[in-house]
Nucleic acid binder design. Structure first.
Lengths: 238, 238
DNA sequence: CGTTAAGTTGAGCCTCGTCAACTATGGTGG
DNA sequence: CCACCATAGTTGACGAGGCTCAACTTAACG
């Protein structure tokens, strides 16, 4: 695996998949490539949704600041978190091929997004040539990200999933020039559990376990790594 | 969920996700839209791989006949099946953003593929305007497909996964004007197990269970539905 | 016809989900 | 500023679903 969070723009990191390595820390977000497509700027408060499952598809959204979760309601009515979106990420890519959004995007904190419009009046997609390349690579990367998540949830234990998640988030932090060792998670335990395909209680149990092993410290949503190499090690020797 | 197999081209099926319904049977494959991008035609024997994980990315491949599995080797060295590709599907989309293939594609039976080339000499992507729209929708749809698989594997029991898989395959069959009630699976039990995030033994146990409940008949790779409504019912009332 | 891989079946165990009770947190209105 | 309530988070006990391991049968293929 490579990353659990979308990265932007794609870098080049050949070789075997390596869980939650520095792949997220490749290159700086370069969101301005899409600037010609920007429309409105929207400010979101925590809990607010920029689009709702089933509503007509209008555009994708580029996250400038804050954080989002994108989720799908299943037949039982409870939500499954598909991904988290950080600054530089595009949301709604999975809905382009439909006339409506196949999931919802909800702000986890006060956030700023741009509308990214590329549909003509007849709903046909029109990308300026200089953006085409970039856009397709973004989608390809998104595809690879979900595949990573798929591998993580189908072949790894609860502890490994938590570790991979935290390491990926950490990498994303340093990507934004924030501390990779100490950070505050914008999402709830429930969100993490849903994202990783676990029960909330299991998430907690794994966190306490990692705490007892002196690998990290968690108080509420604040995370502090004690032994980051130890964490990485537990991922490799699965 | 909507489908576990890529569909081509995307249709319009608004509303909540509904597992393995007729969504796969939307519209006929219309692969010729990409015809301007076709290069060589390649014939593959079972077990042959059209590209290998880590090798330099050259192009995507359109399946014309036969079937493929695309897989990723994890750090332990065993393969995880990411998707199955049927006639009309594109493979390698997840590798566009990298200089190399992030997984491998292996023929499950004697198959025919087209090389789909859209990279210029400088590796920049160049899509004819009339194809752009179509191509992006394909990628978006692929994204939605994997999200479906993600939801299936993270929130559903072994039995439900098997049922969803078989129903999706059945839908794909009728999509190709083949019988939806009786068909031969091109992939091994191992492939199915890996794809659904299960052990081979579990796959079998569920098949026998469904057999005992008079819902279907399985002999080797041949599947015959006895009570397709019964199967659908067991998916809804999860 | 022999060899190897694929498929099947059973027994036992372990991880993780479920349920229930409890505590902490944060937001709101009096 | 505090009381209140709702939501989020925590902890423990228990059970079940599915994985592991091992033995065996069947199928595929030269």
């Amino acid at each position: 695996m490579d990353s659990l969070f979308a990265s932007f723009p794609p870098g080049t990191n050949p070789g075997c998949p390596s869980y939650a390595t520095s792949s997220l820390a490749r290159s700086k977000p370069n969101s301005d490539t899409l600037a010609p497509l920007f429309r409105n700027k929207i400010l979101c408060e925590p809990g607010e949704r920029i689009y709702a499952q089933g509503s007509p598809f209008t555009c994708c959204y580029l996250v400038r600041s804050g954080a989002f979760k994108s989720l799908v309601l299943n037949e039982r009515g409870d939500e499954k978190i598909i991904s988290f979106h950080m600054p530089g990420d595009l949301t709604g890519l999975d809905s382009i091929h439909r006339g409506h959004y196949i999931g919802s995007a909800v702000a986890l904190e006060r956030s700023l997004v741009y509308e990214v419009m590329f549909q003509g009046p007849g709903n046909e997609l029109r990308l300026p040539p200089e953006i085409q390349d970039h856009f397709i690579r973004i989608m390809s990367r998104e595809l690879a990200n979900i595949e990573d998540l798929l591998m993580l949830t189908s072949e790894h234990t609860a502890e490994e999933r938590i570790i991979a998640f935290l390491l990926a988030f950490s990498a994303r932090q340093s990507h934004q020039n924030l501390s990779a060792h100490q950070f505050r998670l914008p999402m709830s335990r429930n969100d993490i559990a849903s994202f990783l395909g676990l029960a909330v209680e299991t998430v907690r149990r794994m966190l306490t376990r990692l705490h007892e092993k002196n690998l990290l410290k968690v108080t509420g949503r604040n995370v502090e790594f004690i032994d980051i190499e130890g964490l990485r090690y537990r991922l490799k020797t699965a």
